[in-house]
Design a protein around this nucleic acid. Sequence first.
DNA 1: TTGAAAGCGCTAACAG
DNA 2: CTGTTAGCGCTTTCAA
Lengths: 332, 332
Amino acid sequence: MTVTIYDVAREANVSMATVSRVVNANQNVKPATRKKVLKVIEELGYRPNAVARGLASKKTTTVGVIIPDISNSMYAELARGIEDIATMYRYNIILSNSDQNENKELQLLETMLGKQVDGIVFMSDVISSELLYEMQRSPTPIVLAGSIDESAAIASVNIDYYGAAYEVVKKFIDNGHKKIAFVSGPFTSRINKAYKLKAYREALADAGIEFDENLVVECNNTYDEGIEAAKTLAAFEPTAYFVSNDEMSIGVLHGLGELGKTIPEDAEVISYENSKLARMARPTLTSVAFPLYDIGAVSMRLLTKYMNDEEIEEKQVILPYRIEERQSTKQE
Amino acid sequence: MTVTIYDVAREANVSMATVSRVVNANQNVKPATRKKVLKVIEELGYRPNAVARGLASKKTTTVGVIIPDISNSMYAELARGIEDIATMYRYNIILSNSDQNENKELQLLETMLGKQVDGIVFMSDVISSELLYEMQRSPTPIVLAGSIDESAAIASVNIDYYGAAYEVVKKFIDNGHKKIAFVSGPFTSRINKAYKLKAYREALADAGIEFDENLVVECNNTYDEGIEAAKTLAAFEPTAYFVSNDEMSIGVLHGLGELGKTIPEDAEVISYENSKLARMARPTLTSVAFPLYDIGAVSMRLLTKYMNDEEIEEKQVILPYRIEERQSTKQE
DNA sequence: TTGAAAGCGCTAACAG
DNA sequence: CTGTTAGCGCTTTCAA
């Protein structure tokens, strides 16, 4: 029924090995033979079976990608970065959503290893010790994308979360703000708690401003919670808002709008993400550019190095960030 | 090195077949034997090799998904729908971006068939005849998600694009509008040209309103082009705008705002997508709810039926749409 | 430059 | 309920 390498070999009067060489662009084939084989392949409509190839060669040219949720634009951007580089190196991607559920993550890891992927790109706000343990004993290389593993045991690609947050708060302080709100994503995420919040506190401390826990709101990264946060914070009259992502920032903008505040005159807002939403907000959002696409791309590139046993210069890659100035902050 | 089914069989003093039965939850195994095998599996850390399994069984429990661009929220939503149902049926997904490039689409199809996927979900605005030809001779079932194949040769899941567009225009007409603009996506897409535009023309004709080509703008579905379109159209003073997606609608809203127009008093706007952006716009957007997630989910479900040789009631599925009323149209 | 042959790790009859 | 035995379609030594 389906035509196999054997059929091609028979028709072309050569051995399977020769057909295999032709298909794999091996140089050790006489041009005339190659041509003859190619012709038969064409005639028969032969299509190499990647599964059989994978079993024999122990390489599937497929990598696993485990992310929280592809319908969230941040992760979608990351996924696109991963896929583009994967395609460039001729890998395909098995994509799965974990919803940040640890059991699902463990199970996905297991499934992908079972499918013999050549490597895995993993993203999650929190890497439990069990997950870390499993990753370390993985027979296949793993790269963390935009995720922190405190032990630095697993390769990863991130930006300087602390530095970016510190710079934002410092900027507010330099502009004369004393009451600076921090509308954060969940503190279960190490990035939010051990990096951004820490930077927030230390930037305040370095400027001699006392930390006020009323000015910090932990949210679930949604638009509605951004609106809520703005209203909750109103009682404490902050004049500057540092918000963890664009969607929530728009929520803050709208919440503030409902309270009659004008941005940036009454309060300045700096977001953290810089997706296309930042330009679609009114006023447009000043935002820390969090390069998700690049993180994905670099993660995948790093993974190819592991898969090819290339030398790794740095296992923990830190990408640059920048702050994109727009209308939600005052321009000098 | 890696532990195989043979190692387990030897340790447990049973045959490979028995181990296979245990692993595949086959009932024909004595509980005691099962337990013994399970224990050895645990001890040895045996993990079934899905590639070998795929070669032997001719099933990979993997389906291919070919979409234009995962970083576009519409397709991301679709992908999530597909993945959720796939997971439910224990399939994994190989996800690839085609960027609507026909050669890439053909090549991806080829690659996925080579990888022996059990089925494919495909999405593209235009299905060329060559693509159609390849799909028809695919040894593996294919379902089109949110894509039109005029010949109806391939199974598909869509909504009634014509009906939805007709209803929007009719609604505008009933509200007394005479100059109704249509800000469309590319007319290379059959959905835009043969369904939406057709409905727009026919709704006007049915109401005795003459078609004015100046009121139709073909765009590339982006925010910036939405702004542009609003400005271009201004010369013809439309009082109603039917826009092809949320991002572009927000562009129109902002373009109109810059021209000093108030929505919905000066002009009404109805979008087509109803993503979360619709609620984040100001004013919030009335929008045709285009159920991408559902289209993905139903496509995948339909695909499982083909993969399991279940009976198919309808090959061309049409899902319902509805119009979500918000502030960009006048409320009665 | 080419071929023969031995697997890769598993499933699926078939037999008992 | 369990074991034996062929493959699945390809890569990869090893020889020639």
